[in-house]
């Protein structure tokens, strides 16, 4: 195991950022810490890196007890949301920083910097100042700088949070490919479930300072351990008191199945290739159903129409414990 976190608690005044967190992250894996904004998930990498101290509990990195080590002794690379590149140094100097601190021979530093700039596609900008780079380029620079010292763990705190949607997507794919090349144990924080599902080998869902579930993207999506995980990863709605994904509901205009829930279509919204149908059931539940445009047209779904709803075969459902009936949850 590369990182072992045992019984970590951290509060800032009244705010509980981490509540008895136990986690072990295997070597060489790309892990996402996923949770809503303000849920305390950014505190965890800061504690792993030594930028914050845990109130109680311990952290060990590569088998070394690190709870009380200063950040410079942990051999951890950290990438900040707002890049934190050294503004007064050139791109090459930024990347060389960690190596120069370690007093590596000049030739070695030069070779390594060239290699890393190549890796992050910034070779032609080596002599520029960070202020002359775009946001995405700065974040790649920050990554190269962190990788230069060959850290045993790479931590990224909402690395793409400050970038626009298109650059985000590019960098996300690029991070995945980079990880496949470099294989350094990587932990990145995100509040974007799509980002986590797409990039990570393993996802740790954190809510209100507690670990809700740990698993591969498929496991989390197919077998959510709690209604929070179900509604946070992808969309969820309630049907007959059960949490269910809107695309797992079958909609028909005749009472086909026994136990089908009857209701009236209250709203039809077309979004690209899919149609989102809001149905008010006779029991007073508001259910969101997603069907394809073709299906919607074939069935003749329109406002005021009587329909019957039933879970599709093999659909994942969870009893919706804490959620008031009729609440449609959307992923942030």
């Amino acid at each position: 195991m590369s990182i072992e976190i045992t019984g970590v608690n951290k509060s800032f005044g009244d705010f509980v950022a981490l509540d008895n967190v136990n986690l072990s992250l295997p070597t060489g894996q790309l892990t996402a810490l996923l949770g809503p904004s303000g849920g305390g998930k950014s505190t965890l990498p800061r504690i792993i890196a030594g930028l914050d101290n845990a109130d109680t509990g311990s952290v060990s990195i590569e088998g070394v007890e690190a709870t009380h080590l200063p950040p410079q002794k942990r051999n951890v690379g950290f990438v900040f949301q707002h890049y934190a590149v050294f503004k007064h140094m050139s791109v090459a100097k930024n990347v060389a920083f960690g190596l120069e601190i370690r007093k590596k021979p000049k030739a070695e530093v030069k070779a390594r910097v060239a290699e890393l700039l190549e890796l992050v596609h910034l070779s032609q900008f080596a002599d520029r100042l960070p202020s002359q780079l775009s946001g995405g380029q700065r974040q790649r620079l920050a990554l190269a700088r962190a990788l230069a010292v060959e850290p045993s763990v790479l931590l990224l705190d909402e690395p793409f949070g400050a970038l626009d949607a298109k650059v985000r997507k590019e960098l996300r794919d690029w991070l995945r490919r980079l990880h496949d090349e470099v294989h350094v144990t990587t932990v990145f924080v995100t509040h974007d479930q799509e980002e986590a599902l797409e990039v990570a080998d393993e996802i740790v869902v954190i809510n209100q300072g507690r670990v809700e579930q740990v698993g591969t993207p498929d496991e989390l999506y197919d077998a959510p351990a709690s209604d929070f995980v179900m509604s946070f990863l992808g969309e969820a709605t309630t049907l007959g008191g059960q949490l269910i994904r809107p695309h797992d509901i079958e909609l028909s205009v005749t009472p086909l199945v026994v136990g089908g829930v009857e209701g009236v279509v209250s709203r039809v919204l077309r979004v690209g290739f899919e149609v989102r149908v809001t149905v008010l059931t006779d029991a007073g539940e508001e259910v969101v159903v997603v069907v394809t445009r073709t299906a919607a047209r074939h069935l003749g779904v329109q406002e005021g129409r009587h329909v019957w709803l039933s879970p599709a075969a093999g659909a994942v459902t969870l009893p919706s414990a804490g959620l008031p009936a009729g609440t449609a949850l959307h992923a942030v």
């Binding site: 930028l51 690379g77 950290f78 934190a84 050294f86």
Partner: peptide, 20 residues
């Protein structure tokens, strides 16, 4: 953040002060 970045890259408190 730049100071923390320097620390995580291995700089001591004094090195961080003089270089960053």
């Amino acid at each position: 953040e730049q100071e923390w970045a320097a620390r995580s890259l291995g700089a001591s408190g004094f090195q961080t002060f003089t270089r960053i």
